[in-house]
């Protein structure tokens, strides 16, 4: 089954829409979902032209396609556990929160908190991602716990904050403090970043671009070889963050390491 949701023009296009109802399993039986525009409850049809093509017996067979002005729609794919969502343009915050299975493809850019507290499944963002990609919620000790988030472009600050499991791959650059408070899982940064992995207590982070000046609290611990994008790289291994318990691993390219603490 294909569900195509095309946005209708709105009088106040900047008011955010919250649409946690847009997940494949919800279209199996009903279409009368509620979404919120600001503080007003609306029917899905009030904000979208809805087209349904073909049948489905399980959520795995449902594919939801969002097109139009989708950059202000928040919480699409929240608690999604099967099927597929394809967003033709940009998507708003919190796309794929708590997602446990299935697939989300964002053809444009994703706003902040992409895949927040994700448990499983896969998110592919073909454009750039905002801050807190693959991160956790305020005050919570564990962030993303499973699944994969892959960003083909760049990502903002605090990528994979509190990462506890699963994999976050950013092909482009990351902002400040990616992998901060990381405690498990894997973070791969294809481009540059600054101050990776502050206060990490576990997990592995690999930076293939320039990591800038490393924090003083990382201890050099040999070298290793790593592969990314079909190429092999000689990587310097750091253990840290020593200011905390120092159980995490940070890999930095030997030839690009601009400075050593």
């Amino acid at each position: 089954m294909r569900v195509i949701l095309k946005t209708r023009p709105r009088k106040k296009p900047h008011v955010p829409i919250e649409a946690e109802g847009i997940i494949p399993q919800n279209f199996l039986r009903k279409n009368d979902l509620s979404v919120y525009e600001g503080n007003r409850e609306r029917h899905l049809e009030d904000l979208f032209f809805v087209t349904v093509e073909g049948p489905a017996v399980s959520p795995d067979q449902v594919e939801v396609i969002l097109t139009g002005d989708t950059g202000r729609i928040k919480r699409v794919g929240e608690y999604m556990n099967a099927g597929r969502i394809i967003i033709e343009g940009d998507i708003g915050m919190h796309c794929g929160n708590f997602m446990s299975a299935g697939e989300i493809i964002v053809r444009g850019n994703a706003d902040a908190w992409l895949g927040r507290e994700m448990r499983g499944g896969r998110i592919l963002c073909e454009g750039n991602a905002g801050d807190y990609c693959g991160a956790g919620y305020r005050g919570e000790k564990r962030g993303m716990r499973g699944g994969t988030v892959e960003v083909m472009g760049n990502a903002g600050d605090f990528v994979a904050e509190y990462l506890s499991g699963g994999e976050v791959i950013v092909h482009g650059d990351c902002g400040d403090l990616p992998g901060v408070e990381m405690r498990g899982g894997t973070l791969v940064i294809g481009g540059n970043c600054s101050r990776p992995c502050g206060n990490m207590t576990g997990g592995t982070c690999m930076v293939l671009g320039d990591p800038g000046e490393l924090l003083p609290s990382f201890r050099r611990n040999g070298s290793t070889e790593a592969e990314f994008g079909g190429k092999k790289f000689r990587m310097a291994v750091f253990r840290g963050d020593v200011a905390n318990r120092g159980k995490g691993t940070l890999l930095v390219r030997e030839d690009l390491k601009s400075s050593r603490p």
């Binding site: 101050r195 502050g198 206060n199 924090l215 003083p216 609290s217 020593v242 200011a243 603490p261």
Partner: peptide, 13 residues
Amino acid sequence: AVLSALRMIVRGK
């Protein structure tokens, strides 16, 4: 970074 360094010193590192 300065705070991290101070934490290291206090932790005996």
